[in-house]
Write a protein that binds this DNA or RNA. Structure first.
Lengths: 209, 209
DNA sequence: CATTTGCCGTACCGTACGTTACGGTTCGGC
DNA sequence: GCCGAACCGTAACGTACGGTACGGCAAATG
């Protein structure tokens, strides 16, 4: 059994365990209520006893599932070499595209729904995990780019965190909450490209030197 | 029993029924899992038989609760008389303050968590109700103001919906998703005022004539 | 070959909760 | 005062699901 509190990564899991967590992810995407211990055991062709041996209890399985998915979506970091206005704009736009793509994906929606509903109860760990690997990871990833842009004289801001949150708002707008609430909005590749370009332009209009 | 599909308003409910729904709201805010039929009956000092007689089943009670809360938070409409740049800025800033105040309130967070978790199952009605009385109601309320600003030559945009969504993003940013995920961020009166002012300034910088 | 280990499949248990049923009480109308 | 409707409080039922126990089997281990 995985010790509680230990971060689950790619190497601390056997292939069989990864398969089990992928089965849980599939069940979660197909509809939040299908994710029962019996359902996971049947989908993964394993016994419930094994689930409890490996993950402790239902919460442990859910936590491991969320962490496993978080470990899978490591986005490529942005390089801050040769930073001119064009390169910075490309980096920001690519970041926006990646963010919208992940956010609008079935897995992200299902995972955020699960974490949000668990944050309503006493168990807030799932919410914190999603926050840490979602919103906060985004900030840690983009802030060096923003600061590099400021150092290069391309951007003007005092509070980097505030600048990132504005960029976040310009990119995401009402997309995430509408998706979480079940709004059947279409977010195809073309829309994402347009949204990312618009967010970049608006961000430069607000923070460009 | 309330016929299914009928919109529950302020006048279609007796005082006793409103008290029951307020009890359900209180239970919901105190922790999503406390909202059981037995819990509501005990809190409202009524019998479960009465609950089922009035609301049909648990889903009906939840739907009525959400609609009842939505009926309570009718925000004051913005008047479009005497629209100069200063009046428009004040209207936008007040809208932003109201939006942030409602969004960060305990009831809104609890209600959105409930609706989000229900959107993950097959029953999407709660999510649609919250969307209709939340995000969409905001759009219907602000769009006339934006168009009046455009008619007065104060704002420049082609797509009113897009302009509203940008304003929404500038105001809300990451606040709602962080609150829904259980982030213990403080959003006191001072912060809301500053956020609203910043959102107004940024929106004017992007869409001002 | 004998033994241990790990795991599958399944049956089982306890609990929580939605739902129903029923006896007792209050209250307005005649 | 009498009646019926509405309602309260509680007990009871059915089910779903988290968690546990156990038999069997196959592969590793000696």
């Amino acid at each position: 059994m995985t010790p509680p509190g230990l971060t689950i990564g790619d190497d601390t899991l056997t292939e069989r365990q990864k398969a089990v967590l992928n089965a849980a992810l599939g069940l979660l995407v197909e509809g939040g209520d299908g994710l029962t211990m019996t359902g996971v055991a049947r989908r993964a062709s394993c016994s419930k006893e094994t689930l409890y041996k490996w993950f402790g209890d239902r919460d442990g399985l859910l936590t491991a599932t969320v962490q496993w998915q978080a470990a899978k979506v490591r986005m490529v970091p942005v390089d801050r070499e040769r930073l001119d206005a064009r390169a910075l704009g490309i980096a920001l736009e690519k970041f926006a595209r990646d963010l919208l793509s992940v956010l609008s994906g079935d897995i992200s929606v299902a995972l955020n729904r699960l974490a949000v509903s668990h944050a309503g109860q006493e168990k807030r760990n799932l919410g914190m995990i999603v926050l840490e690997n979602g919103r906060y990871a985004m900030g840690r990833r983009l802030k060096p780019v923003l600061e590099a842009g400021r150092d290069a004289g391309l951007l003007v801001f005092e509070d980097c965190e505030a600048a990132f949150r504005t960029f976040f708002g310009l990119v995401v707008r009402d997309v995430q909450i509408r998706l979480l609430l079940g709004d059947a909005m279409k977010l195809d590749e073309k829309t994402i490209l347009e949204d990312a370009r618009r967010a970049r332009e608006q961000f430069f209009a607000l923070y460009g030197a």
